[in-house]
Amino acid sequence: MSDEKNDGFEPTIVGYLCNWCTYAAADVAGSSRLQYPHNIRAIRVMCSGSVDPLYILRALFSGADAVLISGCRPGDCHYVSGNYKERRRMVVLKTILETLGLESDRIWLRWIAASDVPKFAATMNEVTAEVKKLGPNPINSAWSV
């Protein structure tokens, strides 16, 4: 057995996935039996631009070790600009957390099109591996937040 400190830690990752792109990619990944970690808890949203920072914070304050927001590639948003606006919101959210010394690297933003099925599986592997390295989210064990 490896002696890494986070050995055996299985992170909970909440994924807000865009209906038109990433959720479709997840669907195809599943039906084509492409393996990816079960740590991701997929929540289908109509657009990455509909993900309020509060949804992300709520997840991180309520048991999630990380949050992934994934939507259409820039320029491909089915609502024209939802993903561009989400990108700005994520920059603001991450800057707020970094300024206050909270972990902004538990928030992941990725653009995965419906046809990017291997990229979807690879991203889930990447996120899960990175969050395993980070270890459990300290907010989840802090009783006084």
Partner: peptide
Amino acid sequence: LPLTTFKEAEFQKVGFE
């Protein structure tokens, strides 16, 4: 207001384009 607008080519590292 910054959150009501955007530029196409900005913050490209945030979402790994």
